[in-house]
Design a binder for these strands. Structure first.
Length: 317
DNA sequence: GGCTAACGTGCCAGTCGATA
DNA sequence: TATCGACTGGCACGTTAGCC
């Protein structure tokens, strides 16, 4: 299965944007190589995009498929949404510049945008993050891609994996054990069934709220909120785990029970985005290490870290 | 509705014994 | 003495159920 270029186009960027940081954050080696970013656009057809920097304010995007014709306009709109190149973060930066946990990292991370993904994939990410360290969670997800995803070859790129679809999961439930998901496998199956039975649908992902997603057994508030942040850029209700709750409590000197309230007061409608960025700022260190870094004032990511961090994940997995 | 304990799973560092 | 593998306990976590 070789995907070939259907169309090549230029995307103009009108906001502060750092392509390399955006492409690198929380990404795998089969999607980012340091220069080019591969974006799965459709896993059924399959269709992908390859994106690279054309100039400071322009990106070159190639859409690749096995078919000779695809709905180019639909996929271009999707590429723009995934990359967030039309997302103006000026208000967010104003808060970032003043915030005591964030301000030291603005010079390093300004221009980074969250890469969105499908609701299904966002839920897989969230489920893998349950009760797991950063490394553990992303290794689980990587194994799901390798064991259950589709292996395809992309022209002038090479081999890549497309995320497994709900159907792939439901027809290979026995393979989930090899992904070392533990009890999370049950939740993945429940979510896959929800998609297969049209209880959840990609087409409605922008309409869903937390209450819709937590109806699936195994999906709680954290997973639902994270999925909405990643899939729909819904930042109003931040995913706050124990890790972030403790950090908020220490940094802003508030009881843990007031952590979410404090966070929303600081970030307003940007709470969800700032939750994700916090993990990048602190290199997703374990709680004790993250608190030690906060105490030392090292509240910025180590870009050239040899460790596995959100920004270097693609070098390791 | 809010709080808390229990649950469950993988990771990781430390320890110990066997072996070369 | 060095290396290796097995084992163990603590840690990192979100969800769930039960209690008030």
């Amino acid at each position: 299965m070789v995907l070939q270029t259907i169309v090549t186009t230029i995307l103009d960027i009108k906001v502060d944007y750092d392509f390399k940081l955006t492409a690198a954050a929380y990404n795998f080696s089969w999607y980012f190589n340091g220069k080019e970013l591969l974006i799965p656009l459709s896993c059924e057809e399959p269709v992908v995009a390859l994106v690279k920097e054309e100039s400071e304010k322009q990106l070159q995007a190639r859409i690749l498929s096995m078919k000779k014709e695809v709905d180019v306009d639909k996929y271009l709109a999707k590429i723009k949404f995934v990359l967030g190149i039309e997302e103006d973060l000026k208000e967010f930066y104003n808060i970032w510049a003043k915030d005591k946990l964030f301000r030291k990292s603005l010079g390093i991370l300004k221009g980074i945008h969250l890469r969105s993904t499908s609701l299904w994939n966002a839920l897989l990410i969230g489920i893998c993050q349950q009760n797991a360290s950063f490394k553990q969670g992303w290794k689980m997800l990587a194994m799901m891609y390798k064991i259950l995803g589709k292996k395809v070859t992309v022209e002038r790129w090479g081999m890549t994996y497309l995320p497994p679809s709900p159907r792939d999961i439901l027809s290979n439930i026995n393979l989930l054990k090899a992904c070392r998901l533990g009890y999370r496998a049950g939740t993945v199956v429940n979510v896959a069934k929800a998609f297969a039975n049209n209880v959840l649908s990609e087409d409605k992902s922008s309409e869903y709220v937390e209450e819709d997603l937590v109806k699936v057994k195994g999906v709680g508030s954290y997973t639902a909120r994270l999925a909405l942040v990643l899939a729909a850029r819904k930042y109003e209700r931040p995913p706050i785990d124990r890790w972030l709750r403790k950090i908020i409590s220490v940094v802003y000197k508030v009881p843990e029970r007031l952590a979410e309230e404090t966070w929303v007061k600081i970030w307003g409608k940007w709470g969800g985005l700032s939750s994700v960025i916090t993990t990048i700022i602190l290199d997703a260190e374990t709680l004790s290490n993250a608190l030690a870094r906060v105490a030392k004032g090292r509240t910025y990511p180590i870009l050239e870290s040899k460790e596995m961090t959100p920004l270097t994940l693609w070098k390791h997995v």
